[in-house]
Design a protein around this nucleic acid. Structure first.
Lengths: 176, 176
DNA sequence: GTCGATCTATATCGGGCCAATATAGACTGC
DNA sequence: GCAGTCTATATTGGCCCGATATAGATCGAC
């Protein structure tokens, strides 16, 4: 799922500037499955323009750089659908936290507890955001995708809460 | 969590060649939190050698290129622990599947059903592999990390099975 | 028994992407 | 009135993936 495809997908819903695309990736129903940085979006839009998959119109602004508003073309729509029809690449999950947990024996116990608390807090926050986003009326598709993420986050949280790998719990479990 | 750090972590457990590091990332208790390609591992090991964080000894082999066996140095151990003590970067989840689901309206219904089936099958397989890996005796840390992944996968599966976004279910849900 | 496939093992390259940085005016809160 | 954040574009360095190349070993199938 390269950034060009992500841009095309977002533009199938509405025209947007590069900046708006970035915002939609972060806030829309796309979180947390996709990400894209400015350093990827702007070159992607240039390439898409060259390939005639999007068109640009510049909106002049006083004392500011022009807003470049991108629209998807018919060729772009076809290319987008074609790329979704190709076998999808696998999901990727990367967790520096889980990796660090594997080396808990090399770290101070107190620091482990801190990392765990921070991770739990962060996951709670992400889940709350998803629930909040889901409260607004949405398309069935967005609800489906959002629910899938919520399910995974909720299960992770429950697991962490009941299996806290800190001093007290370790002692308690050993005593069972 | 860059590839240099991943290499250092694996080398804290045992000496290894670049090839063996790759295998351990794929098969060990590291799946599915981390990944690294050869194109990242070999340059990472060169840089680590230059920085004196690992040392190499070449094992000559007849009619084959030398096996280059890497060992972590004391400086390497210190650098590794230091990098785990720094605030960790956030987890990243990327799902081309979930992204594609958001554009279900642009795709043939039959193709959606296929993608869903493939995704479910794939997730089942990943979960089975984790369960199998967990059956062997492991350290408590590895068990903890493995369990966290299992929880997330299992919840995702359950969600997908009960919310299948295909024709029949959609009709059935609409009738409720 | 021999032929294709898979495994061990190294390495490079193009292209894609992230994080940081630069620029610059407008708006918001204190 | 000024600090911080927001809109908006863009570039750069460096990291990383996927594909590709090389090459002998081993192993199962037929």
């Amino acid at each position: 799922m390269d950034v060009r495809t992500i841009c095309l997908g977002i533009l199938t819903r509405a025209d947007a500037t590069g900046y708006e695309i970035k915002k939609r990736v972060e806030e829309g129903g796309y979180r947390p499955f996709v990400e894209a940085s400015f350093g990827a979006i702007y070159p992607a839009l240039n390439k898409l323009t060259k390939d005639r998959f999007v068109s640009v119109r510049a909106e002049a602004q006083e004392k500011r750089p022009d807003r470049k508003i991108y629209s998807i073309t018919e060729a772009g729509r076809r290319a987008f659908v074609a790329s979704l029809m190709k076998p999808l690449t696998e999901d990727r999950h990367r967790s520096p936290f889980a990796f660090a947990m594997l080396f808990a024996d090399l770290l101070p116990e107190q620091h482990i507890a801190q990392m765990l608390d921070a991770y739990i807090a962060h996951t709670e926050q992400a889940l709350a955001q998803l629930q909040q986003a889901d409260a607004k009326p949405k398309s069935q598709r967005e609800h489906f995708a959002n629910g899938m993420s919520q399910a995974a986050y909720a299960a992770t949280l429950e697991y962490l809460r009941s299996h806290r790998l800190n001093g007290e719990t370790r002692t308690a479990e050993a005593a069972e």
